[in-house]
Design a protein around this nucleic acid. Structure first.
Lengths: 223, 223
DNA sequence: CGTAACTGTTAATGCTGTCTTAATTAAGCC
DNA sequence: GGCTTAATTAAGACAGCATTAACAGTTACG
């Protein structure tokens, strides 16, 4: 799960990055509207957290411009402005949710999950795929009712693949989804994690599409 | 826009019906979980407003059951319960938004619009051609419903031809489309790839126009 | 505080499918 | 029939990936 965080207060940003990464999100943090807009052009994000009080531009203006470009990524506004009119203005500018500062990290996480669920067209928080279930909010994986112990990277990889079942994801896309845009790995780390996933969930969980990337497949049969 | 309102307090319900219908929504009002569930089976709704304090069942239970049936209509929870845990519980049960009583009608309307915009904004740009489908976003090819496994070059070739059905593309044009303008191949590679495409999709997928190039044709019949 | 277990990354090796090449056969055209 | 163009086939080169092992960093626990 790749989150673009647009927030100028370094303290809040730092807390959010740490807290949400613990919950399995991958964050890229920008402190200015300009930088955020560039980041959006550069890579793919699953959701944006937008602070309204930015130094170089009002968050609503940024949001409006993003929407006018046809981008439809879910946007959650984070703001201290609490009047009905301001909240309505936020939603009308194209936000999908509006959370007040100060906020509770658990609620923010739950709302992010809810937005992601909706944007990926699912009806429930639980992702189910041929006997394999993954709960993004609790980060628990089960295969045919049996709990499976996955490491952080393995979980992130599985989540990225499950988010778009049927789609082919290139190694680069997966890398962005696991590490964020800035610092990636310089080796076949993704490759190795895929291999480990297959050892735990069956060699067919992930299909290789030679030259293009990987795609979700069918896991182990029940024993 | 068709809204299913599930709310047992007749005063609030009446106000909502009147207020939202003024804003162009169409409302159906149910006061019990049972009735709401039946209404969902019977007809189509674009969004549901759900009060948690229902007489016959807790709203969260109803929501969970609806989600387990695979229904993915957007749900906005209306509740007086205001603790973080309760809001998180609501979102985890599959709600898309959570609004506190007492609420402002303008904000409710704005949030409904936000939900609807998101749920309707999903379109696919599938290319279809005589039973052959190609989805550029997932890079998946299907012939009469059956998935077909194409290699990278074969896909690129097919995509180039499908982009301009009816047009004749010279071997040189196809080469540019596969390899870029700079460095091409110096043999009949395109020719061989065409041959392999025909083996997988039927000898008539690609028509040869002698002296000029190739153009899209009709693939295999369904077996 | 130190050891053990686990996790993540890097790197080396070998395998496999794909791409290209080239040679041969078949088809269209004057 | 001779010439040109395309289809078919097979073989080698190559790139991409799986697999394995080693190492460093981190966490858990005595």
């Amino acid at each position: 799960m790749h989150v673009l965080l647009v927030e100028d207060d370094p303290l809040i940003a730092q807390g959010l990055v740490a807290g949400l990464e613990l919950q399995g999100f991958t964050l890229d943090h920008m402190a200015h509207a300009r930088a955020a807009e560039q980041a959006l052009q550069l890579g793919h994000f699953d959701v944006m957290i937008l602070d309204l009080g930015l130094p170089d531009e009002d968050g609503l203006q940024l949001l409006t411009r993003i929407r006018s470009q046809g981008k439809d990524l879910p946007v959650l506004i984070l703001s201290a402005r609490d009047t009905v009119l301001q909240r309505v203005a936020g939603l009308q500018a194209g936000a999908d949710d509006y959370l007040l500062k100060p906020f509770d990290l658990r609620e923010l996480a739950a709302r992010l999950h809810s937005l992601l669920r909706r944007s990926s067209g699912r009806s429930s928080n639980l992702i189910e795929h041929h006997g394999l279930t993954f709960d993004p909010s609790s980060q628990a994986v089960q295969l045919h009712g049996e709990a499976v112990n996955l490491s952080r990277r393995e979980q992130a990889l599985l989540a990225a693949l499950l988010q778009k079942p049927g789609h082919i994801l290139s190694a680069e896309q997966l890398q962005d989804s696991l590490y964020g845009l800035g610092d990636g790995v310089e080796s076949n780390a993704i490759n190795v994690h895929i291999y480990n996933l297959r050892r735990k969930l069956g060699s067919d969980v992930v299909k290789t599409v030679r030259g293009l990337g990987y795609r979700m497949g069918v896991p182990h049969e029940p024993t």
